[in-house]
Design a protein around this nucleic acid. Sequence first.
DNA 1: TAGATTGTTAATCGATTAACAATC
DNA 2: TAGATTGTTAATCGATTAACAATC
Lengths: 227, 227
Amino acid sequence: MSDSRNSTRAGGVPPATVGRLPLYLRALGDFKAQGKQEVTSEELADAVKVTSAQLRKDLSYLGGLGTRGSGYKTEDLVATISSTLGVNREWPIVIVGCGNLGLALASYEGFSKRGFRLAALFDTAPDIVGIKVPAPDGEQITIKDISDLSSYVRMNNIQIAVITTPASSAQQVCDQLVNAGVYSIMTFAPCTLKVPSGVDVRQMDLASELQILTFHEQTKANEVISI
Amino acid sequence: MSDSRNSTRAGGVPPATVGRLPLYLRALGDFKAQGKQEVTSEELADAVKVTSAQLRKDLSYLGGLGTRGSGYKTEDLVATISSTLGVNREWPIVIVGCGNLGLALASYEGFSKRGFRLAALFDTAPDIVGIKVPAPDGEQITIKDISDLSSYVRMNNIQIAVITTPASSAQQVCDQLVNAGVYSIMTFAPCTLKVPSGVDVRQMDLASELQILTFHEQTKANEVISI
DNA sequence: TAGATTGTTAATCGATTAACAATC
DNA sequence: TAGATTGTTAATCGATTAACAATC
């Protein structure tokens, strides 16, 4: 048993598809909010700006979810994508680094709305350790000292962490997290983290993203000049 | 003239390469800070976690920059990548939406350190319009009313904007920006923006990024169970 | 010259797209 | 049955990698 169930088709959803599933789920939430009980691949694809062929291909990795001639049931898609992504449960996260960015993320409603709960905040600076910060759910979270990071993560079975420290301490924080069993890390520190294989890192390098935009502005400018 | 100069090889740097150039530049900054005047493809590739073959291929799109037998001059690479990306000048940016995230980005030093200057901040809420916010360079920036967005952008020739509004107003803000001539947009609003072709959008959907991490956690958990 | 490392080629791999048979 | 839309196949496109000749 346990094999040809409705569960995630054993093995492989391609990475490019995994990256789009959250976007489909987000768009489906909007459709659901509008009371739409069915969507076609065309409609959903338009909402996310992919081609309908790509959407159908992506969904086909999760199993045959649609009905030829009519489309997909919103509810079904939400359920299957949620369970594939594992967001049909709540994930506790910790944020390490309580500068402006860390604190902004601590109160970011987008996380709590989409399956994440801020479990704890950490920092090194003695003058802010102990301060209470309001989380989006109305609770107060006390900033903990970073020396408690490992034990907290272990005790509370934290699997996902967000690093918002300066680049200079990011690697050290990362090592601590990995040693304590955190294998999924989102980092905003502008440096490449060295991690053992099996650990997943999503790097959000905000300035690099802006530099990708300047490349295109630059290119447009050059084209105008060379014409 | 103007053709076979050292300039960006007319036309095409592939998108995947463009996405890595900022990372190379960042790593080169670190090498330079350490006083390293030369790097090999192996060293730089290691620092960014790509293969050396990929690094050399990427750099080859910018022209033959290295010296067989010894490597690349740090200085030269920095100069060429900077000029390809267009970050050898300062880019003024505006941030629209002064919630926690917008304000955190307003004071984010990572932008100012890497070629961006916060020119102005915008919001709709009457109770915060007019407030002064400290920018990373020590200057004070006054939050402007969003009704002044179009004229400000036009008058000051702003080409890059960051949207940190709620999803519900992001499209409207985006339309205003595009109408005023902003063709490069970074958005943190969790929704797909519709823009005319020629406009570049980088979507930073933070919750979606976390959901990509949960997929892998979920997958690991399933593997354990099925063993 | 010998040793080292680039720049480039050709092979591979993965992702996207177009098209249409299957089927509601 | 006729109309519609999925799921899948095969073709295309782009990105990555291995390998090595070129050359410092």
